[in-house]
Design a protein around this nucleic acid. Structure first.
Lengths: 300, 300
DNA sequence: AAAATAGTGTCTTTTAGACAATATGCG
DNA sequence: CGCATATTGTCTAAAAGACACTATTTT
């Protein structure tokens, strides 16, 4: 950095990658998009979709391109923003690599298709990762934890939770999104030790760590869970209690610019019930006051 | 990405740098640490301190090392966290470079010493940058804007504002920190067009853009302001009104774990007044409820 | 009618904010 | 004392939260 005649070779070369945490809610459970790696390192393990950045594209473009390549998911991602960068030496056994993590929200995602580095891609409930049933490659567990923390903050003071819903949605659907998120991530926030082991440098020259058959897989994700960890369907509802529908209704409606009425009404669900009004999101960017999860007893 | 025998040369090489936005409050004004570049590109221009990351250090270590090298400021930085990464193609005219920005808070900083890339370093009021009197190199104006936004959010829901104060501080000093920050950054939040021109790729092979004498400088920063921009001491107090001392006192004291009384009392200021109690920060990480700037009229 | 979901009303408790009053140091 | 700042008190308006009630659909 002290030579006016600059030579890039004088500078330490890094690989720069992007990785993505794409949240969605399917069947009332909060999920993230994971791929199963088809290449070493960490061959056969679950990982966040991602890959190397090209010199002629910016970071967000790279993130969208890699997502499309590995999971064939594109415009369905309704929100995408940067989470942070991870550059612990040795985090990639191949070479110095800094990864720029992104996180996003999507609604109504199709079944992802594997491609590129990925032999397989799937929407995995975050509770599977939180419980330790699934362990991710690289430092992706750490990235996921940070993404969930960011998700929590963002849905409280921005209208982003609406991105989990369709373009037109009811207030109940919005409330259900909040409930699902807070329910499914309570393990991350209440005790941060879940599936969070310190990052270890992987050994160099590792092939497939377990004997996973090559080629495309068609068995369910449960077959890939770590066998040494029990996968009890923990009823650890912990302490989160759902939002009150009446109070929620009033709260969001009194935030000016949050919800835009469409005049239309939803068709009631199969189980009956009064049809709800349909809304879209307005142009508001910051919710005042913010929406918080119910804390059952803020022990004086 | 499809070759099991990995060769780093196959992957696009990037330079990875760190840049730092270090806030402090000096003479009741919010300031950031800037250096004047002693090397091309942007020789002679103001920039955030920073530099290339080494392959054997992590990103935060690199940030602290570069800060110490260029400004001789080290442990005085009481808080340092990542802001985000910036990788627009062409943002560095020399080669593909991704920079990881950090922001921090420091109290009682010494006069910084130039070093390394920096011929000069100084604590510059953010209002000087907001008003356009000072234009930063690379995309550092954009980074600064993002840092201020993050600072705003963080001081509202964390105890971080206390890092602007000494280890033991009075509630008034804490309140003054909030007032100063919100006052001095109101131009950034209220109209985001201040000194925010779209990023332009700098021309290649540029030497010193203006005729700046080489070597160490000892003239005040005003001599380096852009001559084509008037540097009116704009009294644009805009709309921020200071916090009420009584209400602030009650608010912060009722947040359990925020302030830890020391039992000691401060000596009153030169202008007299009742001595105030001295506090340290507790172990609380999130302020509930958060502390917000006063919005004069939330026009119903 | 019964069940289910949407939406409103009401009451109580808590909080925010304006602003007055008191406390404690200094010259 | 008179000034300046710290700290407490008081009152009012707004918001949060618990929960009962009404509305509109399906079976």
């Amino acid at each position: 950095m002290t030579d006016p005649t600059h030579n890039p070779a004088d500078y330490p070369p890094f690989g720069v990658t992007v990785d993505l945490v794409v949240f969605s809610i399917i069947d009332k459970s909060l999920r993230i998009l994971l791929i199963q790696r088809d290449e070493p390192p960490f061959r056969g393990k679950w990982a966040l979709p991602g890959g190397f950045v090209h010199p002629d594209e910016n970071l967000e473009q790279a993130a969208r391109r890699e997502l499309a390549e590995e999971t064939s998911i594109g415009k369905e991602v309704g929100h995408l923003e940067q989470l942070g960068s991870y550059g612990e030496p040795g985090r990639d056994p191949r070479q110095p690599v800094v990864t720029v993590a992104y996180w996003g929200i999507a609604h109504d995602l199709p079944e992802p298709q594997g491609g590129g580095d990925a032999r397989y891609a799937e929407h995995v409930p975050v509770t599977e990762v939180a419980s330790g049933s699934i362990r991710l490659a690289f430092d992706h567990n750490e990235i996921l934890t940070d993404a969930i923390e960011r998700l929590h903050h963002k849905i409280s003071y921005t209208p982003l939770a609406a991105r989990f819903c369709a373009n037109e949605f009811t207030i109940s659907e919005l409330r259900s999104a909040y409930d699902t998120i807070w329910q499914d991530t309570s393990q991350f926030t209440e005790n941060q030790t879940v599936a969070q082991e310190p990052f270890e440098k992987p050994q160099l020259s590792l092939a497939a760590p377990q004997s996973v058959p090559p080629g495309k897989l068609d068995f369910p994700i449960h077959a890939l869970k770590q066998p040494n960890l029990k996968l009890v369907d923990q009823p650890k509802e912990l302490t989160y209690t759902k939002l009150d529908s009446g109070n929620f209704q009033r709260s969001v409606l009194q935030i000016n610019g949050f919800l835009q009425p469409t005049g239309k009404k939803s068709s009631p669900s199969t189980s009956g019930g009064r049809p709800a009004e349909l809304f879209t999101t307005g142009d508001l960017e910051e919710l005042t006051p913010p929406i918080h999860p119910k804390t059952p007893k803020p022990k004086k």
